[in-house]
Design a protein around this nucleic acid. Sequence first.
DNA 1: CATGATTCATACTGTGGGTATGTAACTGTG
DNA 2: CACAGTTACATACCCACAGTATGAATCATG
Lengths: 193, 193
Amino acid sequence: MIRRTQAERSDETTAALVRAARELFGGNGYAGTSIDAVAAAAGVTKGAAYHHFGGKLPLFRAAFEGELGEICAKLERVAAEEGDPWAALRRGARTFLEHCLDPGFQQIVMLDAPSVLGWEAVRAAEHDHLLGILVAGFSMVAEDDEAAVPARAQLVFGALCEGGMLLARSPDPAAELPRLASEADRLLEALRV
Amino acid sequence: MIRRTQAERSDETTAALVRAARELFGGNGYAGTSIDAVAAAAGVTKGAAYHHFGGKLPLFRAAFEGELGEICAKLERVAAEEGDPWAALRRGARTFLEHCLDPGFQQIVMLDAPSVLGWEAVRAAEHDHLLGILVAGFSMVAEDDEAAVPARAQLVFGALCEGGMLLARSPDPAAELPRLASEADRLLEALRV
DNA sequence: CATGATTCATACTGTGGGTATGTAACTGTG
DNA sequence: CACAGTTACATACCCACAGTATGAATCATG
């Protein structure tokens, strides 16, 4: 029997559970996924899942945060590659649209999360990770009313989400992406003043 | 015993079920509402619900369509009060934002429907009822690429939905509404070209 | 009014979220 | 290293609820 520390045991189990949760919740949706299935896919039983997460909802929340962390990291990476904040905004919008093609991200973050976790929880989490980037970008280029920036960023974010869903359902996403991206650019441009 | 025709019996029962479904699904969400509860609120039992609708999902779909029909009727009414299509668009956007303050509409149409019925089903239904109005308005004022109109309308619709949720969460919706409406106007204006 | 079709109620089954309890694996202390 | 105490799970159980018969009223029709 290998000797592992408790922290190692916990970390490995929770990591396996979150990985399985993202896989199954992303593939079959929240309602279509049982805790037993997630635990089995992680090589443990319900007991472990309830011990570490305390319920189906917190487990889903962990999967949600995993998805959010991934897109956030990607956004920060590409934003850093651009020089001025405005180019970063445009690049970020396009990157977000592309990321919506990931079925797991779509199912967990776009479809199930608002219903399962509540809109405000999702909004709060997205604000910390995604919208913060948008708001920062807008703030840097906004030339007039600073107070209108958050609401404006929110509206653009809603448009981007809708665009992402539209893109994912497109019969030819590769052809659709540039058109949507240009429409998104137009939106950003419109709100620049 | 009063003598009723079968059609009357069916109509009364289904109407009562849909009414109860809109009430409960709207108040407690899809997952938080049992068929027994809906049936009890309608004065019948599960048997009636399953006889007329065949399951929880079709029952929810009926509630969803009821909500959609209501907002649609309201939109058509206010749009008819405006003269030119552009004013109708602006008025429609504002009306939609206001309607998002209804908790039942929010829960059923904005939060649960995409997760429960699937995004494409919701999109299709909304396209027939709500987006059709938007697309028609844009088509009438679009001066350039006609092909870009549907996607553009979709993005605006996404922004409006996000604005509606934001409005509903606002501590002072009455104060927030005009600001959001002006931002929406700005969006519409931007896409007019 | 007799026969068949609708409309519904009642009783039952299965699945799955949640909980209680037991057991094995680790950790700190003498 | 022995031995309590804690942590990490597995197992067995309960219960709510979606879905499925089955049967009994109610209504339509020849």
